[in-house]
Design a binder for these strands. Structure first.
Lengths: 219, 219
DNA sequence: ACTGTATTCGAACGAACGTTCGAATTACAC
DNA sequence: GTGTAATTCGAACGTTCGTTCGAATACAGT
């Protein structure tokens, strides 16, 4: 019996945290995902063909299907892994920090650092957000919602701590816009590193929301 | 002799400003562009097939090619028209206004109003920025650069008028990010109208850049 | 060296793609 | 109403698409 593909293999992939086997299969799959990310980034999900992915990863067209059962599932794996990682790193970095402003700066820095260090993956995540169909889409959307909620929480904390008044929704979505748009313009030969950009964007955004109208007393 | 297609017909389309013939051809082409915009918005440029466009616009597959010679040229026509219009409207609105802050608020309002009133077209413009190849791409890129330069000018004016100190490039690109990202989240049933959002984004952005460090005297 | 499982591949499938062509139809000037 | 040009269409072109299948190869345990 052959053809395991990611469906059956997810269990073995879970075990990695226990005794770290990191099978040959896991390694090869990660390699393919990496190449696929690069191709999706360059040509877009619809624009990239399975033959492109085959050529780029050095594996035959049919061989790819040993590792995942469809092109869509491949995109799903990329998006899920990328999103899960960025959320997890954020949680680690936030642990122990209590100052509301500092926490937002950490959020911005974490986002931009990961974005620039994994530009291809993050572009695929941002740009191909609508490419997945119902089943796959909802699972990625759930992580996205969690990430969004975290940011809303951070801003609400700042708001109540300093008695500010602004629409959290618009503020959060504006911040995401500022940060995510970076994939359309960032040029490593011209632009500064993530930390500098994070400071600059953080300055504009935080001064923007903090120098606003203070809320009067309730009712 | 049949098959004019947009190549030969551009001249007649130019004359429109003089005596406004607005031929049957022009009207039909505009209709098709409108439907195509909607389909590109929903399924993406690569994801939308000529057969989709045919079905949506009610014209036969072959019939479409009477109006433009390729799918790529169709996207080009949509992008060029959309971009040209928004730049032109901006210039009209800026005429006569001298206050630097007010001019930036006009820029934001113009952008968001047009964005929300022509959401499909603007999404196609934002999302499919890389879909065009060399020839077509450079012409659209030129308009985009002009639009970008206008915004840089507005911010530089504000900077020197108030003696501010920040990176114009990062500020402009952050602003574009805030505004353009709107196509990923705006929901007319939940979110306010363009004017409200423009005010809110303008508040955050302008306070952000204006409450920054003032520049010391030169050298 | 042998055996069984894990991995890879060449070749092909039917479907869908963008585009073309010549004929049919429609609209309009006279 | 007739003739001419503008417009539309059905049918097909050759390519490329995502996916499948059975055979071939590599590898691990004995």
């Amino acid at each position: 019996m052959a053809t395991p593909s990611t469906a059956t293999r997810l269990i073995s992939s879970q075990r990695r945290s226990a005794a770290a086997p990191v099978t040959r299969y896991d390694r090869r799959l990660a390699e393919i995902l990496e190449h696929a990310t690069e191709v999706f980034c360059r040509k877009g999900y619809e624009g990239a063909s399975m033959r492109d992915l085959s050529r780029e990863s050095g594996m035959s067209l049919a061989g790819l299907y040993y590792y995942f059962e469809s092109k869509e599932r491949l995109l799903y794996l990329i998006q899920k892994h990328t999103f899960t990682t960025i959320v997890q790193r954020l949680k680690e970095r936030l642990r122990g920090v209590t100052d509301a402003e500092e926490r937002i700066r950490i959020f911005i820095l974490n986002h931009l650092e990961y974005f620039l260090a994994n530009q291809a993956a993050m572009k695929v995540l941002s740009h191909e957000a609508e490419a997945l169909k119902n089943g796959f889409a909802s699972e990625v959307a759930a992580i996205k919602r969690e990430y969004y909620r975290i940011c809303v929480g951070l801003l609400d904390d700042l708001k109540s701590e300093r008695g500010l008044q602004f629409s959290t929704r618009i503020a959060v979505l504006s911040l995401f816009g500022m940060m995510n748009w970076i994939y359309t313009w960032h040029n490593p030969r011209v632009d500064a590193d993530a930390a500098s950009i994070a400071r600059e964007m953080g300055d504009v955004f935080l001064r923007g929301v903090m120098s606003g109208v203070k809320a009067g007393k309730e009712r």
